[in-house]
Amino acid sequence: MSENWTALLYLVAAVCFIFALKGLSSPSTARVGNLVGAAGALVAVLVVFAAERPDRLVWILVAIAVGGAIGTLAARRVAMTAMPQMVALFNGVGGAAGALVALLELAEGTSGDLAHLAVTAFTVLIGSITFSGSVLTFGKLQELVTGRPILFPGMRWVALATVAGTLAAGVWVAVDGEVLGAVLLAVLTLALGLLLVLPVGGADVPIVISLLNAFSGITVAASGYVLSNTLLIVAGTLVGASGTLLTKMMADAMGRSLVNILFGAFAGGSTLG
């Protein structure tokens, strides 16, 4: 397939995603909107197969079959009341997928200049935060972990040290393209995701899920840059932007501020238990 056709069909998929968001924001069109989004995703998958002609089809098809089966079962079986935590899990694995793709693209050694390596590091960082943070929000809503804000003595310092370590590892990856640095970065940012969500109270968790959803949008956009894939950039940015706005609207609807939700427990103020 020629480059023009690929670009054109990617555009079709991107427009589908925009219509999906538009449809989902009005009650009468929401269900159709969701279907349009799914159609866009299908188009995108077919185009990438036709355009890139990937090898190892067996591996890929097995992975799709396993993922598709798990996704379908989970979506069908989940209790109506447990849907928010299901969304959190889906979101978490999406973030993890983005981080893994960036990490392995780096391991393949095909990456190039400073900007490219910096974005790769950023993708690993934000994808890992999304994954561990989402898994913890799942635990909180599923009541595997207490819904009350969790703080431990010296948590602030642990958090600061983790952030400092993350920055150092990030710079290491950006300058050297070192895979070991990226693995270290992934471990540190997995911890960071936990530290971000631990102090959040149960009632605020849905807003944090929405925030993490925006984060994985940003992960996907960044991985699109790493792989020079326009559709990933567009789809990821759409989700990142709309997800950020949605998070703010959800917080406003509950009369809460995002800063208070995330850091309120540190300040000794209340975060709704």
């Binding site: 995703a41 793709v101 996907v220 991985s223 789809a235 759409l238 989700v239």
Partner: peptide, 14 residues
Amino acid sequence: GTNAIHGIVVLGGF
């Protein structure tokens, strides 16, 4: 719905 859309990151894996 937006969460589903960013699942398109699967393309990167392919």
